[in-house]
């Protein structure tokens, strides 16, 4: 099957998932108790006519399914509407937070690879030896440490006690040295568990490659161990790890929700938690949907990348 056909097919299967995701997002948000109009008027004795006209202004007077369709129609054109609570457009509000979460996510992702891949290789080569044990225990510790707890402790030690880093984000553009320095702790916090996962995956995949015929053959032919490792085994196992790492977006987003709280990081996670407590439905919807779409698209891309790397995936017929 050609890559084009595969791409089309794979993209098609995302459609029902996407529709399901919009329905679920909408449903969850509207099941939540609370009326945004109550919030808007501060629970006061507002003239019923005023109340009704406000309701109509945000389409809250229509049946739920109509609201859903209207919303989907708007979202399809990237129009996220206006928040009744802030009176501002939801799109820019969310877009303003997005770069922060992306910056944090990407740096944590890179850090986890930077730690996980070498650690995994060393562990695989040293199968059963002390380095393997150390990396294994390190990975277990990384997985078992609650990230918010780690963040709090890091912030306390390096921010409050030692004063090496700021405890709240600096008043600087995202792409600045100050900001980069501040991001060190959140990045470490977010990357810890991911790095542990990558280490373990890398170790096992490398291990398997090392046991393969061709590696043994290469060794038998007298190739240097270094060459064997880097040229053959590593390349093959890396593709596996990188594609799996692509799927870590869900883990990253989960972590971001918590880590952003700890480090006062103005990202999507913080916006989500804030908006839920404000009953800011359109914002919650936009954030959740964006997260879902990002996950779906990431899965799709990873799948395609994977198919390019390994044509057997699409050999289907």
């Amino acid at each position: 099957m050609s890559i084009v056909r595969y791409t089309l097919r794979r993209a098609l299967t995302s459609v029902p998932v996407l529709i399901g995701a919009t329905a679920l997002t909408f449903g969850l948000v509207h099941l939540a108790p609370g009326d945004p109009i109550d919030v808007l008027v501060g629970f006061d004795h507002v003239d019923p006519a005023t109340r009704a006209s406000l309701r109509a202004e945000y389409n809250l007077d229509r049946p739920l399914w109509q609201q859903y369709l209207l919303w989907v129609r708007d979202v399809a054109t990237l129009e996220f509407g206006e928040s009744p609570i802030t009176g501002r457009d939801v799109g820019p509000t969310v877009a303003g937070r997005l770069p922060h979460t992306i910056a944090l996510g990407v740096s944590a992702w890179l850090l986890s690879l930077a730690i996980g891949i070498p650690a995994g290789i060393v562990a695989a080569v040293d199968d059963g030896g002390p380095a393997d044990e150390v990396s294994r225990i390190g990975a277990l510790v990384g997985i078992a440490t609650p990230n918010f707890w780690l963040g709090l402790v890091l912030l306390f030690v390096f921010g409050v006690q030692l004063g090496w880093v700021r405890v709240t984000p600096p008043d600087a553009p995202l792409a600045s040295l100050e900001m980069a320095w501040f991001m060190v702790l959140p990045t470490i916090t977010l990357a810890t568990a991911l790095a542990a996962v990558v280490t373990r995956l890398m170790r096992s995949s490398m291990r398997r490659e090392l046991e393969r015929e061709y590696v043994r053959g290469a060794r038998a032919r007298g190739l240097r161990e270094r060459t064997v490792l880097l040229k053959h085994a590593l390349r093959n196992s890396l593709t596996a790890v990188v594609t799996v790492a692509g799927l870590q977006i869900a883990l990253l987003l989960d972590g971001a929700v918590v880590v952003e709280q700890v480090f006062s990081w103005p990202g999507m996670g913080q916006l989500l938690v804030e908006s839920i407590s404000r009953r800011d439905f359109p914002v919650v919807q936009a954030v959740v949907l964006l997260i879902a779409v990002a996950t779906i698209v990431a899965n799709l891309l990873v799948d395609l990348a994977y198919a390019v790397i390994d044509p057997r995936i699409r050999h289907d017929r």
Binding site: L24, L253, D254, V257, L272, V273, I291, A292
Partner: peptide, 16 residues
Amino acid sequence: LVDTLYAFPFLVLAIA
């Protein structure tokens, strides 16, 4: 259904 639920990160769904 599984895919759809999977589109939501675990914690985000649990929070909701």
